[in-house]
Design a protein around this nucleic acid. Structure first.
Lengths: 347, 347
DNA sequence: CTGAAAGCGCTTACAG
DNA sequence: CTGAAAGCGCTTACAG
């Protein structure tokens, strides 16, 4: 199996009887310093290309300073495992669709070494430079890495709101959504709410807490915050079961499911004894046959918008880039569900 | 936002007070023509690299003829959509895991233009050349493309058996699995089997038919083949309902589910009136609460082995490559299930 | 209008 | 042992 020598522009030039530079110009449909290539020449070049199996070498193009039409996808943990896919699936689908539309390929940084449980974007062999720009996904983004990307002026977009200055992102407006859930609870007669959360320090987690605090102040409800980082879930359940709050809100659907089981052991049924709502996506989940009350998050749209923004960062020049809205929050919606119910009597 | 000039080996060389070539050698831990670089020099270079944000430019490495540690993933249709993920999910997971182990990144050719319903691997802008090698996934592989890859000596591996000469693959042994299903049916007293299939011309489809024919001959059973390409599913159901065959085997689980609905309308219950088995993966699927009889296919393993083989094709020299087993079939297993039952009486 | 040439950042021979 | 140089396949100025 001898490899036939790779066809290059030089070979095309030889066949067409022109210079290699001319081939490059025809291929890129570009003309420099009042150069004009006659249609006849272009045609000769095109025919020569068709005769052969020529494809431009993307490494050479990139080295010469051109776009690659390759976008990087960096996830802070494995994205394609069965469990991750529940979260990453819709995001990846949105990314794939948008990439297809833009004519870009996607480089997944699966090789990134794992340190302290999360992958590192920068390492001795990072292929980041090969891409025109990069999308960052995951809860546990590394602040130092984000800052370095900003400093280097490397085009990238984070999926999810970030606090670091200069970081472009597309995020979900958890503050508003959380307020909407509280509003619903209040409309149903509730006045005392427990929020069970993971005690994480991510921006999204902070936004939920902020949204809750804001709503509590505006609507005069009392809130109790319980973190599973401080005490385990069964303790949290015990506190709720023995307390007087009438609604329990959880950070995500998995905590809701686990907590419902614990609460059942305390004789608390949902929503008869206690209402429940989730500050996360509840699509496809139910609790004892009942649809859950929570969010419907447009994850595919989120990812697609992030990719579209990235593309703009890449193709625009510095001036046009300055006009770009680097930070976008998109709205999710509330899923009414059946786990948040009218308050029956005062306890 | 001025981009700081990219750090190159030249800059490292300047800092360390050595030549750029020396930097390259230290980085790659390589020595040519009885060259030996003293540890002291190596240390100076390493320190210079740590001082800066140097990362090697993968495009330049590739252009200079080195491996990229990038493996291409080509799917003949979108892989990350909700529906595709059912099929591609386990394969992609296996690929991701193995890539992580090998320290490789993955390039998904999402940009490939769609023609006649399937994506084209070769097009004017294919980034194939950027990868060290490529994994091919999908039912509808293009023979011409496979042949071209073989001719060009480009390293690649197909997931699924292929007929084209010289194509390396890792496939599933449908012939044996199909025989096993027939054997089970025979052991349960059945002698007449209908096989409902899509009439596809893929190697996997052909293997199922071949396995069935072989088993039928060996075990003296009569088989009827019905293709949904010739007549639609309700007609197929009618033929089965009015016939005397006691087992219906379908090509995959989706056809099984659809066919069961049609058969119910003819008053045929499964497995009381008719047994059913599937020549495809049945994990996670059931029919009216009953586990389906069919295959359990080790898709993750399949994909991982394909990637491992690809890696071998890439790193081995021509001589060592010749010793490689280019074609592997791996065994799936039978899921007993409850839809294939003992034949009650003769009809 | 076309060709010869520099340069992108590397690897790897080959002189010193 | 080290440095200067060629080459990978492109793009893009700059002479002719």
């Amino acid at each position: 199996m001898e490899k036939p020598p790779k066809v290059t522009q030089r070979e095309i030039a030889r066949i067409a009887g022109v210079s290699q530079a001319t081939v490059s110009m025809v291929l890129n449909d570009r003309e420099y310093s009042n150069v004009r290539i006659p249609e006849a020449t272009r045609e000769r070049v095109r025919r020569a290309i068709e005769q052969t199996t020529y494809v431009p070498d993307p490494a050479a193009r990139r080295l010469a300073g051109l776009d690659n039409k390759i976008l990087g996808v960096f996830t802070y943990e494995a994205a394609l495992s069965r469990e991750s896919l529940d979260f990453y699936g819709p995001l990846l689908h949105g990314i794939e669709q948008e990439a297809e539309r833009l004519g870009c390929d996607l480089l997944f940084f699966t090789s990134s070494p794992v340190e302290d449980g999360t992958r590192k974007l920068f390492h001795k062999q990072t292929r980041l430079r090969l891409t025109d720009g990069c999308i960052l996904l995951g809860q546990q983004m590394d602040s130092a890495e984000l800052t370095r990307l900003v400093e280097e002026g490397f085009p990238f977009v984070a999926v999810g709101r970030r606090d670091e200055p200069g970081v472009p992102y597309v995020g979900i407006d958890y503050v508003t959504l959380t307020g909407d859930i509280v509003e619903q609870a209040v409309a149903l007669g509730h006045r005392r709410i427990t929020y069970a959360h993971y005690g994480r320090s991510t921006p999204a987690a902070a936004d939920r807490v902020a949204g809750l605090a804001l709503a509590a102040e505006t609507m005069l409800v009392e809130t109790t915050l319980l973190s599973t980082a401080d005490s385990d879930l069964s303790e949290v359940a015990a506190v709720i079961a023995n307390g007087t709050d009438t609604v329990v809100i959880t950070e995500d659907v998995f905590m809701a499911e686990a907590l419902a089981v614990e609460l059942a052991e305390h004789g608390k049924a949902i929503p008869e004894d206690l209402s429940l709502a989730v500050l996360g996506d509840v699509e496809g989940h139910s609790l004892g046959g009942r649809g859950m009350t929570g969010f419907q998050l447009p994850r595919e749209q989120l990812a697609a918008e992030a990719l579209a923004l990235l593309q703009q960062l890449i193709v625009r020049n510095d001036k046009a880039r300055a006009k770009l809205e680097l930070r976008t929050m998109i709205e999710g919606s509330i899923v009414a569900g059946a786990t948040l119910a009218q308050l029956k009597e005062s306890r």
